[in-house]
Design a binder for these strands. Structure first.
Lengths: 115, 115
DNA sequence: ACGTTCACGCACCACAAGGTACGTACTTGC
DNA sequence: GCAAGTACGTACCTTGTGGTGCGTGAACGT
């Protein structure tokens, strides 16, 4: 994990920098329900490119938020899961999930329930 | 609020898009503790430029997450507060706050407690 | 042979986020 | 006069996020 600055003025500011941006949050939201294979994440997130998905997963791994395990086969079966530390964010992710569902419903935005 | 896409695959994805990025989250985190004047937000967030702070506040207002009131004087006294809908995100912001504090402490990153 | 699967990597690009450096206009105090 | 306060706006620039379009190599199925 590369700390961008050496001091912060707010723990939330630090937290969102550690976690990363939009797709990182969505990845964590999927993994909060249990471990996923790469392909499974890809299917659940059809709007992100493979390049970005891979990059964000690597960053989450580097930040010790995600554990990556591979069976070493060919093709490899790679599995991602939340670290215990990242799992502590689950309550926040649940709030976001419920809030987002209510908001989308209110605005008439359809959400496919594959999350 | 400008919806970027017409359908989503995950409520969390939609939520983080509505809320916006890093500085928007930090603004919400400050406002969860009560209304703030513009200058107060600026002092609590010394690492963000006025331009970006103003822009993000406008976006949060447009997304109906923040209410802006002005006394119309010169110079104006402008106050920002969370909308009831945004206030529902408070539990998530609290989780982020505590998580960020613990993580920073663990990594030896100093955080000035002005948040 | 080709196509599909798996989980990536590389080259290149567009645009949003975020920054700097000014500016606005009024009021108050030195 | 200038400086400071208030809360912004404008022009221009840099960097990060996210994208497209390829490619890898092994195994399996048609």
């Amino acid at each position: 994990m590369n700390v961008r600055r050496t001091r912060y003025y707010c723990p939330v500011e630090f937290a969102v920098e550690v976690i990363g941006g939009k797709w990182a949050v969505v990845v964590l939201a999927h993994l909060k329900d249990g471990e996923h294979r790469y392909g499974e994440l890809r299917r659940r997130m059809p709007e992100v490119s493979e390049k970005v998905l891979t990059t964000r997963l690597r960053e989450l791994e580097d930040a010790d938020l995600v554990e990556r395990t591979s069976d070493g086969g060919t093709p490899p079966a790679v599995t991602y899961r939340l670290t215990p530390e990242a799992a502590e964010l689950t309550p926040a992710l649940r709030v976001l999930y419920d809030w987002g569902r209510r908001r989308a419903e209110h605005q008439g935005i359809p959400i496919e329930p594959v999350c």
